[in-house]
Write a protein that binds this DNA or RNA. Sequence first.
RNA 1: GCCCCUGUAGCUCAAUGGACAGAGCAGCAGCCUUCUAAGCUGUUGGUUGUGGGUUCGAAUCCCGCCAGGGGCGCCA
Length: 579
Amino acid sequence: MEFLAGKDIPAAELKWVPIPFSGEWGTSTSFFQVAANEARAGKGQGIPVPQRAQQIAEQVKEFLAQQVGIGHIEATKGYLNFYFETATYAGRVVDSVLEQKNHFGAGLRTGSRVMVEFSHPNTHKAFHVGHLRGTILGDAICRILEFAGFDVVRANYPGDMGLHVIKWLWGYLKYHQDEQPAADITKWMGEIYAEASKRLEEDPDLETEVRAVYARWDQRDPEVVALWERTREWSLEGFRQMYAALDIRFDVYYFNSQEEKPGKEIVEELVRRGIATDERPQGGTVLVKIDEVLGLEKEKYRTAVILRSDETALYATEDLALVKHKFADYPDLEKSLYLVDVRQSLHFTQVFKILEIAGYEPAQKCSHIAYELVTLPGNVVVSSREGTVVLLEDLLREATARAQEEARKKNPSLTEEQLEKVAQAVGLGALKYPILARENTKLVTFDWKSALDFNGQAAPYIQYAHVRCNSILKRANVQTLEGWNVGFTYELHPAEIELIDMISRFPSEVQQAAAEYKPLVIASIAYEIARAFASFYDACPVIHAEPQVRDARLRLVAATQQALANALLLLGITAPEVM
RNA sequence: GCCCCUGUAGCUCAAUGGACAGAGCAGCAGCCUUCUAAGCUGUUGGUUGUGGGUUCGAAUCCCGCCAGGGGCGCCA
């Protein structure tokens, strides 16, 4: 550091990055910025920056080489690479995994609480692949945030009231009065919804009848309320089963039907305070001309309608109340996240902005995390109205059936009970992984072929690596790995080094995934660890190696298994013992 | 018209402003008397949509353009 200061090199400005993999570990920094600064200050002596950077790197290397306690250093292309001593580094990585076990990679508790709202299914509609993305993504984000050190509140906000529910009730009353649900309730309800939508499209005059049902709901007409309560429960039961099948849980449920009243009160308050414009006297709506209120010249937040002209509530009405409801329940929330598809970006911007204008400060802690849609081949949007849906239950059934068939073929020694479990783990994992391994902002096209492809970069590949680790440890008949005094004192195979390298990256990947709300980061490192292990498995015998090598490798295998298990857990994917 | 997202290998996707743009799939050539072949090894494949700019350095940041998708006063 003193040396650097003497050279006018600001040590604090040096960025340290991993060295591109070359069979050794180390950390590296470059002197391009230093050289560029020199050149700018006229001290560059006319030497091109890259060359000058290399000169500095060499000078620093010369100096450091005279110091004791520093191993292998290299100056190349303007970079200064410090290499760690292999045996020490490898041992430290493996030891820390085996010591920390299922906490390996976990962050320190931050003491700060974050709410993540996700899934928000609509009652009286089908639950299809389109809903799967937000649900799976939300679950993984919660798992990652929790592991990274946050206290997470998992919130669900089912749409149990709104025009779609009213439409369903209307369709039922008019065409299916007193009908009992079919065995598959969710599917049956979805069909009634699709039928109602179709009839309304064919004859727009029927709108008035639907509005009339909405009015009856608003006046709490006993027949409508009773029917709503009964049918709503059918849907909710369906959701409970669905979440159980997906291995997803929630801490708190909010229902938009509960936010109608408080929402309308907020609307009235906004009108009183002159923030909202009340056009009801002219037969219009209540709305907030946000840009106008803020005095913006260019349109940005636009205008938000917050109450219908017939005084029934919109989602906007209810969302205003929900923001407050959440902070009333959890006053210490540092963040309130809304994981909702990208089409609702403007809506949330408006809701949060309106509350901010009204002086409600927690609104600034709210943010919308947008994700893109799942479409069907040919850019067909999944729509319960159009009936272009792939139902989640069909998807789950297909995936597990396919996984079971595959498992039976690959490993005939499995018992029926084991097959069952493997099919669950593999089928579900195969569905989740492609969604999680993709940037949130990218469209996912669903097709059966790739959904049921279990090869290559997919969950089964990672699960298989975990199973192989397990298999080796079982065959080695290791009772415990505690207190082993073994190290990586032999010459490591490149595959071994890469595997250790990948494992060592896991903790920082967790932090990145949490900071950016990106399960993709975990999906990638999980795959990288599995891939490195597959090469290692092929190149490095464990059980039949010499005792000293065998023991070190057994510990590495155990560490790999642990790292894979931790990563899979964050993705909500089961790590099987056998498959 | 305004705003947002996307454009990387034949296909699906990666890549904190840093070293040679990487994987999978598909294709081609190999590997199972040795820890499960849902695997491994090798190989083919690139003007990162396009034109400028900033920078020592750009797939990445800024501006223009092209193409696709989404949103924009009573759907959610």
